[in-house]
C-alpha cells in the first residue's frame, strides 16, 4: 500500500516528485513552504518578490528532482540552497539605491536581541536559535551577514571593518562551531 504523502520522508517525497507525482510535490510544498517563504521574505524584504521566488523554487524542484543526489546532501538542504541562491541573485541584481534601502531596513538583523526575540514554534528553529546563541558574537554576525544578506567576504569585511582574513576565519570557525553544537543538541533531543 502506498504511504500517505504526509507520512513520507523528504527523500521519499523527492523520489516520488522525480517520478512525476504531483501530490508528492504538494506535500513537499505543504511541509516547507512557510519556512522557505519566511527565509525569502527575510532576504528579499518584499512579499510579492518572495512569492515569485517561492514559485520558481518549487518549479525547479519539480524539474530537477530526477537529478537530486541524496548522497550529496539532505533534501531540505537542497531545497533551501535553491531558495537562498535564487533570492540572493535577485538581491544582487537590484540597483544600489534599492539595496541601500533594504540594508537600512535590516540594520538590526545581526543583533543578538532580535535573534533571541524571534520566538520559535518549531523544534528545529529553537535548536538553531539556541545553538547560535552559544557562538561568539563576532562569528554569529558574519554567518548571518553571509547567509541572509548574501554579502561577499570582502563586503562583510567592509561592513564590519575587520580584515578579510579575519572574516574568513570567523566564518569558518562559526560554521564549524554551529555544526558541533547542533550535533550535540540533536543528539540530546534524541535521548
Amino acid at each position: 500500500m502506498k504511504p500517505r504523502s504526509q507520512d513520507q520522508s523528504d527523500a521519499e517525497l523527492v523520489r516520488a516528485i522525480a517520478q512525476g507525482d504531483e501530490r508528492a510535490l504538494a506535500a513537499f510544498y505543504d511541509r516547507y513552504a512557510s519556512i522557505l517563504f519566511g527565509l525569502l521574505l527575510r532576504i528579499l524584504n518584499d512579499r510579492s518578490e518572495a512569492e515569485d521566488v517561492l514559485q520558481e523554487v518549487f518549479l525547479q524542484v519539480w524539474q530537477e528532482a530526477e537529478r537530486f543526489d541524496g548522497a550529496r546532501g539532505r533534501p531540505f538542504t537542497w531545497l533551501v540552497t535553491i531558495a537562498r541562491s535564487r533570492a540572493i541573485d535577485r538581491v544582487r541584481a537590484r540597483n544600489s539605491r534599492d539595496r541601500k534601502e533594504m540594508q537600512a531596513s535590516r540594520s538590526s538583523w545581526s543583533e543578538t536581541d532580535e535573534i533571541t526575540q524571534q520566538l520559535s514554534r518549531t523544534e528545529e528553529r529553537e535548536i538553531v536559535r539556541r545553538a547560535l546563541a552559544e557562538i561568539p558574537e563576532e562569528q554569529r554576525d558574519v554567518l548571518l551577514l553571509a547567509y541572509f544578506e548574501g554579502l561577499s567576504q570582502s563586503e562583510i569585511a567592509t561592513r564590519t571593518g575587520a580584515p578579510l582574513g579575519t572574516i574568513k576565519t570567523r566564518m569558518r570557525a562559526g560554521l564549524r562551531r554551529l555544526r558541533e553544537i547542533l550535533r550535540e543538541k540533536i543528539t540530546e533531543g534524541r535521548r
Binding site: I35, F37, G73, V128, L143, F148, L175
Partner: peptide
C-alpha cells in the same frame, strides 16, 4: 557543512505564503 548552513534558514520566522501560490505552482 551545507546541512549546517541550511539550518540557518530556520532562524527566519516561518510565514505562510498566499494560498494562491500553491495552486499556481500546481
Amino acid at each position: 557543512l551545507r546541512d549546517t548552513a541550511a539550518m540557518l534558514a530556520h532562524l527566519a520566522p516561518p510565514i505562510a505564503p498566499a494560498k494562491e501560490t500553491r495552486a499556481r505552482i500546481l
